[in-house]
Computed example of a mutant assay.
Amino acid sequence: MTHIVVFGSVRRELVTRAERAPDLGQAAPGREFHAVPGGSGGRQAVAAARAGAAVSLAGAVGADAYGELLRAALVREGVDVDALRTVPGPSGTATTVDASGSPTVVAVPGADAALTVAAPRDVALIGSGDALLLSSGPPLSGVTGAALAAREHGVRTVLAPSPTGPLPDELLAATDLLVVDEDGAAALTGRVEPYRSVRALLELVPEAVVTLGAAGCLWAARGGQPMVVPAPEATAVDTTGARDAFAGALAVALCEGRPTARALEWASAASALSLGRPGGAASLPYRSEIDAACPAVST
C-alpha cells in the first residue's frame, strides 16, 4: 500500500452560518464543531487516507480537549498519529464562515505555530514514505525543513499551499510537484495567463499543476508540453475541502504509478465530489466514490 506522509496544520473546524465572520472569542449562533479534523494538513491526511493510502501525519495539537478530539478523529480515519505532538496551549482553529454560499476561512494557528522545524522523528517518518504532502499552514521554516528531509531521502514532495503567498526559494528548490490555483500561480510568477504562469513555474519547480476551477487543470513538466485535463461537471456547494481533496488524491494516484493524465483525472473527480458537499474535511470522498465518478481510471 502507498505510504503518504503529511507535514501540516491540524485544526478544529468550526462552521458558522453568518453574514460576516464573528468574533472567534465569543459564541455564535449556528456554529458547529465538525468531528473531522480541519487545517490543511488534517484535510490532506484524511483525503489521502480516504483515497486508499496508508497515511502518517506529523503536526501539532494543543493540550486542550480539542487536541484529544482531533487526535481521536484522525485515528478513526485510519491516519497514523505517532508523530502528532501535543504542545502547551490551545489547538489551532479554522472557522469557515458561510455567508450566502461563499465560504471564507478564518484561521487561528494555535499549536501549529510550534512546527518551526522538522524534528528528528519527523525526518525519520518522512524518509519512510513514498511521498511527502505539504501545505503552507505551519510556519514556512518547518515546511522547508520537511521538504529538505524528503529531498535528502529521495522522497517525492508534493507542495499544495493554501493560500499561496511568497514561498522560500529553498522550499521551492526541494519541491518536486507544485499544485496551485490560478491566483497562486499569478502571485508566484507575476503572470496572469495560465499557460504563461505554468511555464514560469517550471523555472522554480520541475513539475507544476495549475487548477482552473470548472475548466479543469493545467499540468506541465520541464522538457514537455503543457496539458489540460478537463474537470467533471459539479455544482459548487462548499469550496473549502476541494483543493485538499485534489492534492491528496493526486499524491495517491501518482504513487500508485498511474500515468499523469489519469492521475489528474482521478484527482479532479475527487475535487468535484468534495466541491458538491458542505464542510471541509467532512466533504472529502472515499476511494470507492472516486472510482465510481471516474470509472475510466478506477482500479
Rank of each mutant, 00 (worst) to 15 (best):
T2F: 13
H3I: 04
V6D: 06
F7T: 10
R12V: 14
E13T: 03
A21N: 08
D23I: 04
A28Q: 14
A28M: 11
E32P: 01
G39T: 12
G39A: 07
S40H: 13
Q44N: 14
A45F: 02
V55N: 00
A65H: 05
A65C: 01
Y66N: 04
Y66D: 13
E68C: 01
L70Q: 10
R71K: 03
L74D: 05
L74K: 00
V75Y: 02
V79G: 01
V81S: 07
A83V: 15
A83T: 15
T86E: 15
P90M: 13
S91Q: 06
G92W: 07
S102D: 15
P103D: 03
T104A: 12
T104G: 02
V106M: 15
V106K: 06
A107C: 12
V108E: 13
A111L: 07
T116G: 00
V117E: 08
V117L: 00
I126Q: 05
I126A: 05
S128K: 08
G129K: 02
L132I: 14
S135L: 13
P138E: 10
P139L: 11
G145I: 07
G145W: 07
G145A: 07
A146S: 11
R151I: 09
H153M: 10
A160I: 02
A160G: 02
P166A: 05
P166C: 01
L167I: 12
E170T: 03
A173F: 01
A173W: 03
T175G: 04
V180Q: 15
D181P: 04
G184Y: 12
A186C: 06
A187C: 01
A187E: 08
R191E: 13
V192K: 04
E193L: 00
E193Q: 09
S197T: 09
S197N: 02
S197E: 08
V198T: 04
L201E: 05
E203G: 08
V205Y: 05
C217H: 02
V229M: 01
P230K: 07
P232C: 08
E233Q: 13
V237A: 15
D238V: 10
D238Y: 07
D238E: 12
T239C: 01
T240V: 15
T240G: 12
D244F: 05
A245G: 11
F246R: 02
G257P: 00
A261C: 01
L264A: 06
G276S: 15
P278W: 10
S283R: 06
D291N: 11
D291W: 15
P295Y: 04
V297R: 11
S298T: 09
